Structure formats: structure tokens, C-alpha cells
Simulated assay, not measured.
Amino acid sequence: MTTTTLDSADKSPSEYGALAVTIHWVIFFAVIALFASMNYAQELDKADPLRRTFYDWHKAIGTLVLGLAVLRVLWIKIHGAPDLVPSPRFSKVIARISHGLLYLLLLALPATGLGMTLFSGRGVDLLGIPPLLEADKAVACALHAAHGPLFLATVIVVFIHVVGALWHQYVRHDSTLGRMVPWLRAKD
């Protein structure tokens, strides 16, 4: 097996390269920050200025996640992804479906959030994005209505993704998790 390091931008046929791994983990931690910032903001009194700060950070991080998700999808389209490790057919089907859904949700969830902001006649202040669209309350409300269920779907698919990765690591004892966790990679 060819081993790549965090300094390598190329992937071998069996693992992801440094850029793909970095984007994966940045998105992972950003999604946790999005969840935490929204939960904390919603606990604050509406008059508390900190509430607005958390919403501003939520919008900025969500916009960055959208950009990173687009980059990740483009990177995979251009460079491909490693082949799945040998597994039973049902496992490969679940992996392909969950990855496809995860990419779709990582595009749709922040896109609805950004759309909701823009169609509310606001911008993303922390990123210097001005209000770009005429306010349209109906569209903003429709995007808001979609944002919550998309979040719930994302949580479910991420849970499946994590359980699958841990199943590969601790039940199957194969190299799947090591492709995204460099320190778990087998040493030649």
C-alpha cells in the first residue's frame, strides 16, 4: 500500500490526499460549530446583542461550508476518490448512498441558509457579502422551512457515516477510516 502524508496533495488509489482530508475535517468541525452557535444563539434572549453575534458567525461559517463543499465535490469530480475497500455488496451500496446524500446535504443545507439570508434582504456581514437580492419574504420563509428538515437529515446521514467508519475500523479492521485519519494509516 502506498502511504501519503499530510504534505502530499496527491491521493494514492487506496487513500485520500492531504487536501481532501483537510477539507473533510474542516467541514466536520465547522458543522459542529454551526450546530453549537445556533443552539447557543437560540437560548439567548432576543434582546441580547450576543445573539446577533452568534447568528452572524453561524451565517459566515455556513457560507464557508458551502464553498468548501463545492470545492470538495469539484475535487472529487476532477481527481476521483479512492476505490472502496473490499466489503460486502450491501456495505458498498450503503457507503455510496450515504456519501452521495452527505454531499447533497452539505450543499443544500448551507445553500438554504445563505438563500434565506439573501432573500431576507441581508448579507453575510462577517465575510463582507452585502445584501445581493431584493427581499422576498415568501422565498426566505420557504428556505427557512427547508433548512430545519435538511439539518435533521444531515445529522442522520452523518450519524450513519460515523457508525460506518467506526464499524470498518473496529469490526472489520480494514483501512477505511485510515484514509481520512492519517495517523491510523498502516505503516509500510
Rank of each mutant, 00 (worst) to 15 (best):
P86M: 04
H58N: 11
A95K: 00
L71Q: 01
G67A: 14
A81F: 03
K92M: 09
L66G: 14
G67P: 04
F90P: 01
L71S: 12
K77Q: 13
L71V: 15
P82A: 13
L71M: 13
W75Q: 03
G80L: 06
W75D: 14
G67M: 03
P82E: 04
S91C: 00
G80Y: 07
V73H: 03
A95W: 03
L50H: 07
F54M: 14
G62W: 05
Y55C: 02
V93M: 11
V85R: 09
G62A: 12
Y55P: 01
R72L: 06
P82Y: 06
K77H: 04
K59I: 05
A81G: 02
V85H: 08
T53A: 14
P86V: 13
A95N: 09
F54K: 01
S87V: 10
G80H: 06
V65T: 11
V85M: 10
H58L: 10
K77P: 00
K77T: 07
D83V: 09
T63E: 07
Y55I: 13
D56G: 12
L68E: 05
R89S: 10
K92A: 15
G80D: 05
G67S: 08
R52C: 00
R89V: 10
I94Y: 00
I78S: 04
A60Q: 04
T63K: 02
L74K: 01
V65N: 05
G62N: 06
R72M: 10
V73Q: 01
F54L: 15
H58M: 06
G62L: 07
V73T: 14
Y55R: 09
D56H: 13
H79V: 02
L84C: 01
K59R: 13
F54N: 08
K77W: 10
R72G: 13
A81T: 12
R89A: 14
A81R: 14
I94K: 04
I94C: 04
T63A: 15
A60C: 08
L68I: 06
I94F: 07
K92T: 13
W75I: 01
T53N: 11
T53Y: 09
W75M: 04
L71E: 00
R72Y: 09
Y55N: 06
L66M: 12
R51T: 09
D56E: 15
I78D: 02
R51E: 12
K77L: 14
W75F: 14
W75P: 04
T63D: 03
F54V: 02
L71C: 12
V70D: 11
R89T: 12
V73F: 15
A69L: 02
